[in-house]
Design a protein around this nucleic acid. Structure first.
Lengths: 185, 185
DNA sequence: AGGTTCAGACTGAATATTCGCTCAGTGTTT
DNA sequence: AAACACTGAGCGAATATTCAGTCTGAACCT
């Protein structure tokens, strides 16, 4: 595997498990099976690694949830498909979900990183713009709808994971209905 | 002002602005106008301060949003009152809002702290339980409803603050409607 | 084929820095 | 004058970062 990838994976695991402060660069290098120098060859510093992990996960997430995206599909179908996939992605990658929850609002994540990550999700805007045109949604900027629903997903999943509730298919659909009901006109 | 308060306030400002790692205890002491010893007299260590800030904000928030709480009021009225106040609280205390967003999912916050903070919000459970009895809400555990709506509020406000959108009364009410629509049967 | 060179990647011990925390000395209250 | 609270310089552990030396393998001789 690519060394950059190895470093990012090693760092993610350690940082999630022990926290940023308790994860020395030397441990990251060890676990990635490379020397310290190789880490600093690829990353400016520790925070640069965190930003790298953030972008990597967000890119993977976007690829996963939009895999089936087709503007010709109806808005409701698209909505269910996208958010259903998002739930599935987070449920099947708990470490990554944890990482995103923890760092989404952290000052460690630079503006530039945030913008870069967001750019992968432009299809949300397309879908919401289309839905608004068709009079399906309440009158709010697409971005607000994006955040509102995303926030619901995150906290709801966090709740489920903390209470160790296993999210079955029925629950998943019930949630999708809640999300839809919240923004539909 | 009480020294403990001074320390908590100073720490909150600095930690929000610079991040936990880049906020030495000495700066906290300086800004609070006290010596290091006084800090360590009151707090076991740095993480203890973070936990202290968390509880302080959550306590204040709970006091604010339930100030008018009365079980004899209708569920919809209670819902609007509580969440309306929550929005107002966060809007008028942006630093505190920031802090909570950043540390809600952080491992620095101990389980004990989380439980202690949550206990101030038991009235949510009461309200949701009552609403469920009356057949107003979708069939989910009260805790799920709490998290779902809270997540919506947080992310939506975060969006507004990042895009520097000023939330007027109309928008506030529109949001309340979204939150209600999401969980109503 | 075997030898030589060498650029660039890699390593990890050594260095430099940062910061959490202590405690001897000072100030304040009763 | 005893009891108590407070201060902040300094200790030392943790760890971020550097860089001198090593390794690798491709290119080029002989």
């Amino acid at each position: 595997m690519d060394k950059r990838e190895k470093i990012l994976n090693a760092a993610m695991e350690l940082i999630i498990r022990q926290g940023l402060q308790h994860t020395p660069m030397s441990h990251i290098a060890d676990r990635a099976g490379v020397g310290m120098g190789s880490v600093y060859k690829r990353f400016k510093n520790k925070e640069d690694i965190v930003n790298g992990i953030y972008v990597k996960i967000k890119t993977e997430e976007a690829a996963m949830i939009f895999v089936n995206y087709d503007e010709r599909n109806s808005v409701p179908d698209t909505f269910n498909d996208i958010y259903g996939r998002m739930i599935d992605y987070f449920l099947s990658h708990p470490l990554k979900f944890n990482f995103i929850s923890q760092y989404a609002f952290s000052p460690v994540i630079e503006k530039k990183t945030q913008v870069q990550a967001m750019s992968r999700f432009h299809r949300f805007d397309e879908m919401y713009a289309r839905g608004l045109e068709q009079g399906l949604f309440k009158d709010l900027a697409p971005q607000h709808l994006t955040y509102f629903v995303f926030g619901s997903v995150c906290y709801w999943l966090k709740c489920a994971s903390e209470l160790q509730i296993d999210v079955d298919h029925k629950m998943r659909n019930q949630f999708l209905k809640m999300a839809w009901d919240s923004i539909k006109k």
